[in-house]
Amino acid sequence: MWSCATPRSSTRISGGLALLEVEGLAAGYLGERVIDGIDLEVRTGEAVAIVGSNGAGKSTLFRAIAGLLPTMEGRVVLDGKELTRRPAHRISRAGIAYVPAERHLFPAMTLKSNLVLGAYPGRPDPSALELVYELFPRLKERQRQQAGTLSGGEQQMLAVARALMARPRLLMLDEPTTGLSPKIAQVAFEAFEGLKSEGMTLLIAEQQVPLALSVADRGYVLESGRIRLTGTSEELDQNPEVRRAYLGVA
């Protein structure tokens, strides 16, 4: 239901085709390249995981795709549309919704106002609001509460819900389990599973590799800013190197 035709999505049915293409992407801070030569693609309807340890460059990669960080080299293309070096607000309006680990909510506004702003510059579509409340019933109970006073789990739900309000083509989740208890993290991933089954395309960066692979079809292993490995979730799950480094298996 998320993939249905909306003002922001083209009517072309692109099943199996690459929705997001990243080619030779390099980005970083103060002239230093944190990530380099990143090639990856995400097909419509797919869930793709980016796994890697702390400092591997996952957030830098996401920030570069989202336009929060200038790219030093390479291209970002969404459904054939060149997005390289576009400012973040243009990329957001083009259909990439990025939920950073720090969430960046509007703390002094109500939960509902945060959601309404998710649809900026438009007025929120009532059905989009219904959908996010259906996905996260807890948010509906708290819609008049100030975002800054919500619990960590609720803030994470709100960040995802706000991103969904614009009916994006691609949802990028950066470390969505940050600050969540294992139980809440599990609930969050069940919600992502639900989104995926409704047709949403997902790109998830996560340190908790088993969780990430549980929802993803495929994954990329990022190490020191470069892609080390790629494969289906089963392949990565069975890979001895991945098992040793990220799954705590000797």
Binding site: H89, R93, P100, H104, L105, F106, L117, G118, P121
Partner: peptide
């Protein structure tokens, strides 16, 4: 509302499509 959002969190505002 967009103006208030930029005051509260500029990065968040950019992520929802506001040009600060």
């Amino acid at each position: 509302r967009g103006v208030r959002s930029v005051i509260q969190d500029e990065t968040g505002a950019r992520l929802v499509g506001i040009n600060p």
